[in-house]
Design a binder for these strands. Sequence first.
DNA 1: GCCCAGGGAATCG
DNA 2: CGATTCCATGGG
Length: 285
Amino acid sequence: MKYEALGGKIILSEYNSFDISETLECGQCFRFVKLGKLEYIIIANGKVLRVLQQDDITELSPCTAEEFENIWLKYFDLEQDYSQIKAVLSKDDVMSQAIGFAEGIRILNQEPWECLLSFIISQNMNIPRIKQIVHNISEFYGDKLDDYYAFPTISQLKGVTTEDLAALKTGFRAKYLKDAIDKISSGQIEISGFPQKTTDELKKILMSIYGVGEKVADCTLLFSCMRHECFPMDVWIRRVMSELYFNGGEASSREVHEFAAEKFGGYAGYAQQYLFHYGRNLKGR
DNA sequence: GCCCAGGGAATCG
DNA sequence: CGATTCCATGGG
């Protein structure tokens, strides 16, 4: 991968496995706006970033070299060698097919605070509505950035009541969000300490929040803490795994987790995302 | 009206 | 342990 700063933009070239549409539309991120086939606005890290891809080039704007190196390089997982990941996973025929369906998926490294709250909201909701609710919260509590709204900071949500949250149509999740906001804004849970902790320790900490179970914890760890061995299990991935690996038979979530850990190892998170996207788009159901 | 949605807590056996 | 039920809300 190469990059150069040019007139307030960053021009990426000589990368592999990066399709902005597949990366954003595969269900890991909720704060983006589609402008064209390969042109998107991403609202993240307190910034509005325009991404345009054409002719094997990716253009990020507005973006300085410093912002790219400090934020977006990790955000887009650009230091990972996806050809290596895909080569290992593709030894399995099913995975080979799933990867072939969307070869340009990358696992984003989002902000844990936003990612956690977003996936608390996600439970028992469909993706378009998750996007709507996250947008509602941003519009109501976040900073205005040009024509968009940043996801609110920890201090901006500190002190918000369950009723306030319910008013934004979060339903029964309002009390869950409230507990997450309380534990983090009070310092009882310190996000800044996450990188030094093991995945098991982090999962335990996240699951101590009322309304955070293993799936929401796994999503937070995979999509915002670079714990790529995590394998979030929702209704879709269970359906796909059952069909493709368990001969249509039912398997308990524990069985599927053990299977995934054994088969995909440290790449289980990547495998999960290829399978999730494949299952959701190819098989209508 | 009924079913489902990137789940999890509470309860019961 | 595993299975069931309830939780808010909107769209098909």
